[in-house]
Structure formats: C-alpha cells, structure tokens
Amino acid sequence: MRPFQFSRAPSLSEASHQTAGDNTLAIAGGTNLLDLMKLQVETPSQLVDINRLGFADIEDTDDGGLRLGALATNTETAVHARVRADYPVLSRAILAGATQQLRNKATNGGNLCQRTRCFYFTNIDQPCNKRDPGSGCGAIDGIAKLHAILGTSDQCIATYPGDMAVALSALGATVQISGGKGERSVPVRDFHLLPGDTPWIENVLEPGEIITGIVLPAPVGGTQIYRKVRERSSYAFALVSVAAIIELTDGKFSRADLAFGGLAHKPWHDPRVGECLLGQPPSAELFEKAADILLKDAHGFGENDFKIPLTRRTLHAVLAQATEDAA
C-alpha cells in the first residue's frame, strides 16, 4: 500500500471539492477499494472519507417509490421491510452477493462503483488496458472463463461483477449524483459504460461527483426473481445472473423487465428481450426467441463460450419459473 492522505469530508460540497482533485478517491465501506490498494491496483494519493455525510437513510419518495441512501449498507437495504415487500428482486440480488460480513460494510453507492474481478486487472504484473491503458488485455488470449460475451471491445472483455446493480437495472432505478455542477440523476441502465476504447472509464461519474442515493420507482409488483448461477453456492461471482420482474395478464406477458449480470462490462439490459415477450402467452418457443434476441451478438473467447448456452438455459428457467409462479 502506498502512503496516502486521508481526510474526512465535513460536508457534501467539501467532499465534492476534495474528490475533484487529482488521484483522489472517495471511500465509504472500502470493501473493494482497500483490497485494490493493497495490491496497488488502485494507488490514490488521497482518500476522502464520506461515511459521515448522512444520506444513509432509506425513505419513501413522494410518488410511492423508495430512495436508498448511497451510504446505507447492503445489509440494511436487503433487509429493509419495504425492499423485501415491494422490491424483492433487489433484496435477493444483494443477498446473492459477497458474504454477510462484506454486505454489513459495503454501501449502496460503493456497490455500484465496484471494479471488475478480472484476474489480469488485479495483478499489476500483467497487462491490462483498464488498469494501465495501452498495456494490452491479458484476458483475451488468457484465462477468460468469467469474462464477457456481450458488448466487449478489443481493449477489454471484463465483466461488471455486481449483483445489486443488475436488479436495479431490471427495476429501472435512478442514480442520484451530486457534484461540482450540481445535482443530476442518471438511470442505472445508463450509469455503467461499455469498455470501448476507454475501458478505464467504467461509469458516468465525473471527478468530484458523488453518488448520494438510488431511487426506486413506485413498486410494480409482479413475480420477481434473481437467479445467480455460480460455481459454489455462496461467495462466488456470477457466471450469469438474471433479474426478472414478470407479470402475466390473461395468460399473457404484461410485464417483462429483465437484466443480466456476468455477461458484460455493465448490467445488461436489452429492452427488445422483454418487448418480444409482451402480449404473448408463455411457451418454450417464446423463451427461446427471447434468448435469440438477447444473444444475437454474443461471442465468447474460448473459455467462456459456455456462457452463451448457459445464459439461454438460465433465461429459460427463470421465465418458466416466473410464469409458473404467476399463473
């Protein structure tokens, strides 16, 4: 770990001012950042502790939605009565991630900002365009079992590792951001970016911008499923995950909000997948059609080719389960 300055921001504006500085990072739970600092994957010269800025509450919004404070912990969020009752896909997604100890410490804002677990990103003696622009991608011809099959570039095939954001994407949540230019809201679906030629830019946050909250729209009900396929039954990142909010009316899909984890550099949301289901009665053929749309442009890198059939089958299973439960 390199020496770094540590300050505790007394106010949001001060935090914003401080984190606008060069090589400065905000720290909340630190469950990902501190590990990366020990490995010198992250080498900030200054950390700004934002833990005492407030915005740790979970509160109702005027339109019947729910606002999750960025500094509320993952555990507090997952067990919150309204989250469990109205947004069960979110509660399940959070509980599918990490471990109890990590969730107790990790915050909602930090969760959105977690970095990829690509083996080449976390090893500073290996090439990685994300960590060291221009050094190359170690994963493309290396060990890439966990890597992306959608939205990749020749610069980076890393995945976004989180679960919570996948559920937020299905729910159509919004990220509230505060910074030098004032406040702004960004849909979760637009918050994370694909790698393109700038894989080191992972989300829309500008220097000095801090996530203050996540707003969930008014609950939509439906059958809510978070299915995470992984190599062991806890404390493993998703090979593929599916967040689904499904509703049937008169035996036909009237809602199908779907988002996918483990497939791309961001939680994957392709509106065409849900749209193809709407108005149709559930059937194996229809599920296959949805998978065809989802995976039309998917391609693997050898080791992760299996994710294509796995995603197809997992989507099928989720839709079958959801329509069974809904019927």
Partner: peptide, 24 residues
C-alpha cells in the same frame, strides 16, 4: 488456472480459488 503464455497462477486468492463454502 494457469495462464497459457507465462504459466502464472491466475486465481490466486480465496475469492477466486473456490474451496467449498458452508452452503456447499
């Protein structure tokens, strides 16, 4: 898992080398 080009062990921590957890 070993890198095919330089032979280094890539999954070198307890998050990525999967020993069974309690639920397993």
């Amino acid at each position: 898992e070993f890198d095919p080009r330089d032979g280094h062990l890539v999954n070198c921590d307890l998050a990525e080398y999967h020993v069974p957890v309690h639920r397993d």
